[in-house]
Amino acid sequence: MGELGIVVPAVLAGLTTGAIYALVALGLTLIYGVLHIINFAHGSLLMLALYAAFFLKTLWGIDPYAAVFVLGPAFFALGYVLQRGVIWPASHGQDSMILMVTLGLSIVIDNLALALWTSSTRTVDLPYAFAVIDLKLALIPLPRAVAFVAALAAAGLLWLFLARTDLGRAIRAVAKERLGAQLVGIDVRHVYAMCFGLGTACVAVAACLLLPTFYVTPQVGHAFVLVAFTTVVLGGMGSMEGALIGGLVLGVVETLCGLFLGESLGQIGIFAIFILILLFRPTGLFGGKSA
């Protein structure tokens, strides 16, 4: 088979897919890194944001890329309220229970979407959806190139935010030492909710960048959840540069495994990496101390 000739375009495609994984994982790594919880509702929130972007486009003609500036803040607020109003009180601040609450939330959100919007597949047709950048060796669809650049920008911005702002420092303090942070007067509940809000806003941004080349159904989030967790673990939880590089690496690994093992068996590549990283370097590529 003439597979060598397609390795280059495949790897490039893997990088652009990986950028989407990174975007979804940026939000998750914030939540996972600080709250130390498995947020089961992450995929459902992605799905919700995809619907939001879809309706903004079809009802009001707002382009998904412009919708970033509407949905980012809106989903930040949603995440903040969910954490403050539902997840915190229902979980009593216990890790294992947060997991169950987010599971409950995801059941509610998924089926709300099903009841409200049916399970019909929805897509948007945009004039630039089939524009490509011709690199001679490969054709890169324009929306994927945009997502790639946006992932770099988002990771950079979040990194700056965590490193340079007071809230960013507070978040890192809570992530490292919850009790200590509390003792020096940091409002832990507020920090948690800010984190969840930011994580949810990241998911909304990811949704806006994904919609031009993908589809929405009430189940669409499930396709990204496990990959997002893998990305977070690979990059090291709480690490923005880790999520970015982790996502890109996984995109390429997935592509290469698919290329040489077939798409079905090739899925195993991601999980094999996941298991190996967990066993041999649970702090991830860029992680700090292990939990």
Binding site: M1, I6, P9, A13, T17, V220, T255, L259, E263
Partner: peptide, 23 residues
């Protein structure tokens, strides 16, 4: 000249399409 299986859901068809292109 080629057979490719994929799971459901599948996130990206670029690989398969590239193989088709080359075959």
């Amino acid at each position: 000249v080629g057979t490719e299986a994929h799971p459901t859901p599948h996130r990206d068809f670029t690989n398969i399409v590239l193989k088709i292109k080359s075959a």
